[in-house]
Design a protein around this nucleic acid. Structure first.
Lengths: 118, 118
DNA sequence: CTGAATCCTCCCGGATACTG
DNA sequence: CAGTATCCGGGAGGATTCAG
């Protein structure tokens, strides 16, 4: 399996680095975020929510996250094809941690603006 | 300022992405971690704690994090030169969020091993 | 509609050498 | 001791095209 994002050897025992590898990369977080706000989303719905993403990046990211147990993929044998994506329980467990990080990031952003306006 | 790591345009309003930009990259997290376990560290002490990092990466990462208000840099006008690094209050505020993420990552890692051993 | 395959570009991160 | 300067390769990410 590939280690995208923050690949690091010396901290292999660090679960933090492991977590960052799972949600790192340019698109994974936006995808998770979109999925967290909807029970299930079809491929093209997801593509529309994550603005600017290409088919390549979306399908690749989804596949990787599915392999990591973050995302459920449910395929319906129909014509036209229908595939629904959703977060697994593990994926949902991630949300609180992300919100905590987001809260911190918001604070940092404000302080940055303060610095610039001074 | 440069947007290393997970640079993303469409999610600029997302504080989560902002946070990830601050702690992304290959070395920032290991550095933060080392600093979080010591009140202050000198340059070379830090370099020894973060195994494998080069001068270039260490000084660059430190400078960026200092600019972002994560790290304090205290320089003593002495011979030989002495510089001490520490986390700012904002940097310390990050630790709980990271621990939350680490906890999640640990759980994910265990499940991955389960999958492989089956 | 839901992807896969190929090719290509850009820049992060590393090696090495040098400085006050 | 605490960094900087310069050059360079690899890999993540993107555009385009094709397929079931």
């Amino acid at each position: 399996m590939n280690d995208k994002g923050t690949g690091n050897k010396n901290m292999n025992n660090c679960p933090l680095t492991y977590a960052l590898n799972l949600i790192g990369g340019k698109w994974r977080l936006p995808i998770i975020w979109a999925l967290s706000q909807n029970n299930t989303l079809r491929y093209n719905e997801l593509k529309r929510k994550v603005d600017g993403i290409t088919n390549m990046m979306l399908s690749q990211s989804l596949k990787e996250m599915e392999n990591h147990g973050l995302v459920n993929r449910k395929q319906f044998m129909e014509i036209p094809p229908r595939v629904e994506y959703s977060l697994t329980e593990e994926g949902k467990d991630l949300i609180p941690a992300l919100e905590s990080l987001a809260k911190w990031g918001k604070g940092m952003k404000n302080k940055e603006m303060d610095r610039c306006n001074k």
